[in-house]
Structures are given as structure tokens and as C-alpha cells.
Amino acid sequence: MDHKITVICGHYGCGKTNFAIYLAERWAAQGERVTLADLDLVNPYFRSSDYREELERRGVTVLAPLYAGTTLDIPAIAPELFSLAAREGRIILDVGGDDAGATVLGTLSEPIKAAGYDMIYVINRYRALSGTPEEAAELLREIEAASRLKATAVLNNSHLKSSTTVEAVAASVPYAQETARLLQLPLLDTTIPAFLAGAEGAERFLPVSVTVRAPWEDASELNFVGK
């Protein structure tokens, strides 16, 4: 991923936002200037702009949809996105799901092409409606048509949330390889949730921390208030 812009696209719920956050934090930790732009205009839940505070604490600039989280939460993207080429540092575009979510990229396709981009197609073998290589390939064609951009690599992010096992990840590799072959794209990597990183057989996968989760999923931070 040598280009200024990294576009993260894929099916609803494949893990785009989680991977975009991971990438932003990794690059920021390496001392790079990173902007993470939330382009998800189709779904008001689990968007990268929901994690703005934490991201900014780690040095990532977040561009949220113009009125995200307000009563004017209309499909309007940040005006800064039209001057992408002029922005310093790396830019990650976290796109909404499917072709519906990728439509907004179409508007930005000219400035994105002008600045130079990589477009990562995130896949998850365990997601409904994209669980076969053929379904996954078809979905990308719809996304590419809507976005007027071409994917440059496939990322295998196959997981089952907290029920993910090393075996489940390993079992997804042939699916990812076949999807990449059908699309004639390189398979960038296969991720594994960070909580499995120490497990046997996990070392050949890319550990990615899990940021996007339901509010009750992190009971470990509970303190006994006031005692």
C-alpha cells in the first residue's frame, strides 16, 4: 500500500471499519500523518466516526460525515474530501457496505484517482451472502461499478466475532485464495483477531485488534464504583 489513499471496501459487516481503524492506528504509531475518513452514509451504526475520540488520542485525524450524530444526519460527506490530493500524509477511506455504500466513492473517484490509491476489498467467508468465492467476486464487481474505482488487493478478514477460532480462520484461506484468483487480484493477508494471536497456528496470520463491538462486550473494564 504505497499510494497516498487507501480505500477499504466490502460487504456490510465484513469488518471494514475495524480494519480501517487498525490500519490508521498502526500507521499513526509508526509516526505517519494519517487521516481516517468515514464515508459510511448508509448505516448510522458502528461507523468509524463513533470511535473518533480514541482515534484522535492516538494521533489520527478523523473526517466524519458532515452532520454525523446530529439531527441533520443526512448523507453529506466532509467537504475536505474534495481536496484529498492537497492533504498531507496518508488517507484511509472507510466506505459503507456493498454497492449502496460505495456509491459515494463515485463522486470522489476523480480526486481519488488523481491522488493515487490502493483499494482493499475486505472479505469474510462467514458472512451471509458473500460466503462463496463467486458471491464475493460478484459483490466486488457491483462495488467497482458503483465506485468507479478498481480494487487492487483482497484482504481475508474471515471471522465469527468472539467465536472465532484459529481453525475457522485457517479454513477460510482456500476461499480467500479462490476469490482473489477469480478477481485476478493479490491476496494481501489473512487477519486473525488479536485475542487469538498467542494461540498455536495463529502466527501465520495478521493479528488485528477488535475495536468495533457491542457496548456490553467489554465487561473487563468494570470497576466497583464507589466502594
Binding site: Y126, A128, G131, L160, S163
Partner: peptide
């Protein structure tokens, strides 16, 4: 085999 679904999708498929 288990698949990953959003609640809304699961309601529909069910």
C-alpha cells in the same frame, strides 16, 4: 455451519 449475520438479516432469513 455458523455464519455471521446482522440481526436484521437473520430475522429475514429465519
Amino acid at each position: 455451519e455458523k455464519v455471521l449475520m446482522k440481526g436484521n438479516e437473520a430475522l429475514a432469513e429465519a
